[in-house]
């Protein structure tokens, strides 16, 4: 095993920097060659993207006034929603980021900062 690891480390092939000419920050697309297609959690979303997508989900919620939505709103205090609306928003966020949040944890998410924090730190958010 140790020998195999040493071999694998030794024989890695340097690739010339043909692929490095592209700008690092690219909007997501299927043609993006730097996007990892693996599922082992080393492809974290960056914070800006999470914030943008969380806000767009909340703005699309029918009972919400889109102009009031900022990254630090509380769903019930600032947006005038009730607790069941919060449940619906959390479910919409789960669908947007392809997550499955355990019931108890999902119940605690009641504001935008908490939602963003949870999704940013979740290894499987996609």
């Amino acid at each position: 095993m140790a020998f195999r690891a040493a071999m694998l480390r030794h024989i890695r092939v340097p690739v010339q920097n043909l692929t490095l000419k592209r700008p690092i920050l690219q909007s997501w697309s299927f043609g993006n060659p730097t996007r990892s297609m693996s599922s082992h959690g080393d492809d974290h979303l960056d914070r800006e993207e999470v914030i943008e997508r969380v806000l767009s989900v909340i703005k699309d919620f029918p009972k919400v006034d889109p102009s009031k939505v900022t990254p630090d709103v509380h769903f019930q205090k600032d947006l005038g929603l009730d607790s069941l609306d919060t449940v619906e928003i959390v479910m919409a966020l789960e669908e947007e980021f392809k997550l499955e949040i355990p019931d108890k944890e999902a119940d605690k998410i009641d504001s935008c900062p908490l939602a963003i924090e949870y999704i940013v730190s979740h290894p499987m958010a996609g």
């Binding site: 690891a5 480390r9 340097p14 920097n17 490095l20 599922s39 082992h40 080393d42």
Partner: peptide, 20 residues
């Protein structure tokens, strides 16, 4: 997809800068 394509064993590194 549970447990498919799992994390590689700890002895193997993934070199993200392509050897640069």
């Amino acid at each position: 997809k549970f447990n498919r394509n799992p994390t590689p064993p700890s002895g193997i590194e993934i070199i993200h800068d392509y050897g640069r």
